[in-house]
Design a binder for these strands. Structure first.
Lengths: 300, 300
DNA sequence: TGCATTCTCTGACTCTAGTCAGAGAACAGG
DNA sequence: CCTGTTCTCTGACTAGAGTCAGAGAATGCA
């Protein structure tokens, strides 16, 4: 990585933690501890979430979270009840008062935002906001992790389910997985294949599979990115990672089939060096087929 | 301010405090408290600074700073000695060990920077760094305060001294304030005029004066921005603020003289709606004269 | 010289944000 | 039914980051 880039990031970190970080805490924590505020935020973001999930998402100690919840409960901001299905698990829900409290916290966030923008003129404001959006987007992208998982993992199932649902919605013909040539779970498990899963803050936000048939080119399958995680370059990252792994396994050719309705996907494949080829399978839902020779060019 | 802008700033704040803020602290505070690390940083930035200045810059309690200094002193990272001039004041200086410690802290900053960039591809890295630079620049700009001060205030004297020195260096003829038509301190003190001073983190970084002669147009004088604070839109901000104040005092015409060597200044005046006019005074160091009618257009 | 002020330091607190070690209920599998 | 595991909770403790009220030395000014 270049020295100049690192230095700029450091300068950014210093400026931002000094200016935003400090204010952030002082604004939010005005009469509620910032731990409690964060927890409240998290409860709101995931209605009816269980304590364990909150703990994981915030990375906090179980005892600490428990104590915070007691204090929020005492203030009437949340209710905590045992789950029907599993009596050990407890579910947290915002009350009306909790929602109000959040609204005032949001108001303070607004004040902070205004105090940052206020001294600037209109041109500067617009520029700052635009750059913040870019930083936000790219830092989020950098937070996404991509790992190989077992196709039967609940997170993987979740993504594939969402993938099928989306296909069903977007293809003119609808979509029925049973009619498709998709590999089953075993077909995406080593050594017959692999499945990459992207996670953002622990939530699954995309998947990309690779089929490794013997005596035939490797095939990319089930590339999907959750709507909320698009425009983060995740598709490109999946392709790059799949290509690297395929190359590592001695493969030199990658294939995939897709559908003309999935415009963004087609554009992605083309811009990553995939060339359209005649149909190489009978996938009923495909009307475009692509191929890439891994030594053809960079995956970037 | 627009709702959309505020929301974007809030999103930015959340992402950045979560991603950068937390890591920042955990990286820096690995075996030294982050208060101590910040103090060390500040001592380094201002060699031989006195305790009071450190306290002011970091916004900390005197007792707290004193205690932090004792601990840094005990670890051999700084030395604290009484000042010659004023025996109450104590001066802090880094030792060699302190410099080393800082270097390892910097190394951690680098690690943090890398960890932020690492998951991204080259295009994304370049974009992120560019946007960070922009955010950094504009947040810094927003941190600058502009207030009216007395022309005899040490900060004001500092700026005007720097202004003269810069003129002397840049004008082909050199510059001698005594030959110039500059107003003295009283001429920039209400009601005969006013002086605005810009400060960044408490340090003076620019000035802009207004002369308010009776029966003649108001005149802008001694506009100067410190080299380290340029490209923050400060000149524009001075002009806008001076125009607002002039308008508030019933003035409708502003004038100023300048020198062709100060290209950036001329460009600024032109882009802010100042029109070049024939010489309206005998200022020996001027070769360009400008005028603006305050109802002519926006100051933005 | 005396008095108020400035500057740094010390001692005694406080509050937040945790950590750690279990306890006890609920569940899962044999 | 027993055993081990999971999940939440409680009690006891700690470190960091300050705050507050003076004390004591040095200085400035009348």
């Amino acid at each position: 990585m270049q020295r100049e880039q690192i230095d700029q990031v450091r300068r950014f970190n210093r400026t931002v933690t000094a200016r935003v970080g400090v204010l952030h805490d002082s604004y939010l924590g005005r009469d509620r501890s910032i731990g409690a505020a964060r927890l409240l935020w998290e409860v709101d973001a995931h209605e009816g979430s269980d304590v364990r999930r909150l703990r994981d998402r915030l990375g906090l100690d179980s005892g600490y979270v428990s104590r915070l919840l007691r204090s929020l409960e005492a203030d009437g901001l949340v209710t905590v009840e045992r789950q029907e299905r599993d009596g050990r698990v407890r579910t947290v829900r915002l009350t009306g008062a909790g929602r109000e409290e959040l609204a005032t916290l949001d108001g303070r966030s607004d004040e902070l935002a205004c105090s940052l923008l206020e001294p600037l003129n209109e041109v500067q404001k617009a520029r700052l906001v635009r750059s913040m959006a870019e930083v936000d987007r790219l830092l989020t992208a950098a937070t996404v992790t991509v790992d190989a998982v077992d196709p039967d993992h609940p997170d993987a199932r979740h993504c594939m389910g969402a993938y099928f649902a989306e296909l069903h919605e977007r293809l003119s013909s609808g979509y029925d997985p049973d009619l498709s040539l998709l590999p089953d779970a075993a077909g995406l498990r080593p050594p017959r294949g692999l499945l990459l899963l992207a996670r953002l803050h622990g939530e699954p936000v995309g998947c990309g599979g690779l089929k490794l048939p013997e005596g035939a080119p490797a095939e990319i399958k089930r590339m999907w990115v959750a709507p909320g995680a698009r425009r983060l370059g995740l598709g490109r990252r999946f392709l790059a990672e799949l290509e690297t792994r395929a190359r590592g396994l001695g493969r030199t050719v990658l294939r995939l089939d897709s559908n003309g309705r999935l415009e963004a996907a087609l554009a992605l494949y083309r811009s990553c060096g995939y060339r359209e080829v005649p149909a190489f399978n009978d996938e009923p839902y495909a009307d475009h087929w692509f191929e890439k020779h891994l030594d053809d060019g960079p995956a970037a």
